[in-house]
Amino acid sequence: MSCLSLQGVGFHFPDDDRPILKDIGFELCEGDRLTLLGPSGSGKSTILRLIVRLDEATEGTIRTGDQSIDDLPVGELRQRLALVPQEPTLLGLSVRENLELAAELHDIGDGDTPDLEGLLQQVDLAPDIIDRGPRELSVGQKQRVTLARALVARPTALLLDEPTSALDPGSQASVAELLDRVADETGTAVLAVTHSPEFARTLGGRGIFLRQGRIEDCGDMDELLDRDGGSPIRRFLNGELRESS
C-alpha cells in the first residue's frame, strides 16, 4: 500500500482564483525516493504544504495509507508525514531540546524514549554537539538536526523542502547520500523539493518536473536529467527557464 498518494490535486489562494497548482498526481511507497524539480514559483513547496495541511488543497484528494488526510487527526498526519522546512529553524533551543520537543509533541512516552545520540549518528552528527545551541551550529549542522528531529517520530515519509539550499555542492551530495541511506535502513519514503540536479541525481529514485503549477515531465531521475535539448527540463537545467510568474 502506498504511504502517500495525490490525485488531481489543485490549489489556489482564497482571494485569488488563479491556480497555483493544477492536476497534481503521484504515489509514494515505502522506501521510495521522489524529487520535485522546477523553477521558483512552480508550486513545489506548496505541494509539501498541502500534504501536511499547512495549506488546504482546493481540488483533488491526498491519501496516506488508506485514509484521506482530512479524516486523520492532524497530529497523527504530521507524525506519519514529517515536513522538514526549508529554513533549518531550531526554535531557539539546543539540539537535545529539539529532539525532546519532537518526542513530547508526538507523545513518545518513557517506555519508548528515542535514542537521541543514535539519531544524531544516523544523520552524521557527532553526539557531543547534543547540548549546543543554534548559534553554535553551522547551517549544515542545523539542517541535519532538523532532519534528526523529523526522524524522532519514525515517520512513514519525510517531506523535505529545499534541504540543500544553504549548502555547498559537496554538502549537498552528502545530504542526498544520507537520505538515500535513511530510506534504505528505515524504509522511510523521501519526497524532496530541490533546485539542485546534483542532489536529485545522488538521491536517485523518480523525479517530477513542475512548471507553472503543472507536471510537465516525470520519470526515473537519471532519465529525466538526461533528456535531450528541446525538453522543458533540459531547458530548465540549462538555465533557460526562469521563475514562473
Binding site: 504530521r78 514529517a82 522546512p85 531557539g92 532538523t146
Partner: peptide
C-alpha cells in the same frame, strides 16, 4: 511564521 509552522509541522497544537 517560520517557527510557528515548524511547531505545527511537528504536530504541535496552535497554542503550543
Amino acid at each position: 511564521v517560520g517557527d510557528i509552522e515548524a511547531y505545527l509541522a511537528m504536530g504541535a497544537p496552535p497554542r503550543r
